[in-house]
Design a protein around this nucleic acid. Structure first.
Length: 155
DNA sequence: GCCAACGTTGGC
DNA sequence: GCCAACGTTGGC
């Protein structure tokens, strides 16, 4: 089992939006970065996912989710009306992939980026590294445990 | 709104 | 293949 973090701008799509989906499950599409795509393709059903809200005053991990379906071709790459349309994509030779993500539960409290920075044992998280911009990234098992434990502590 | 960091594009 | 120009991300 592996652990991942995915980012979303809550004004675009929030963790609550995912919770409100049928079965709390949605297609995670629109990823258009090759490294993030490669991580998507490594995801396995049952892998655990941290849901992160970006581009807000206090960016934070807000919820826990699970990979519900492994990578399949992202249909938006073929859709000319979609922002994710890729004219170089050919049916049968997709360039981009999506997975299905199921929301499990919101964290008891959000763990902000600031708190991640100061917490013991989390300084080497990919999320906190300078210049890091990936929307999908791996999380170490120890980091996952630490973050989940933090969320159950009061501040 | 600013800007650093990074990825992509395209001319040569 | 190099690299300048440009676009995007996302924290601050």
């Amino acid at each position: 089992m592996r652990y991942w973090l995915i980012k979303s701008e809550p004004s675009e799509y929030s963790f609550d939006d995912l919770l409100r989906e049928p079965g709390s499950t949605a297609r995670w599409d629109g990823v258009r970065n090759y490294q993030a795509r490669n991580y998507l393709r490594q995801m396995r059903r049952g892998d655990r996912v941290l849901f992160y809200h970006s581009s807000i005053p206090a960016p934070a991990i807000v919820g826990l989710a699970t990979v519900a379906a492994e990578a399949y071709p992202d249909p938006t790459q073929y859709d000319e009306a979609s922002e994710g349309h890729d004219p170089k994509a050919r049916p049968g030779q997709p360039r981009w992939f999506a997975v299905d993500i199921r929301a499990d539960a919101a964290l008891a409290r959000p763990i902000t980026r600031g708190e991640l920075r100061t917490a013991r044992g989390l300084a080497s998280m990919a999320l906190l590294q300078r210049g890091q911009r990936l929307s999908v990234m791996p999380i170490a098992a120890a980091e996952w445990r630490r973050i989940v434990a933090l969320a159950t502590e009061s501040r």
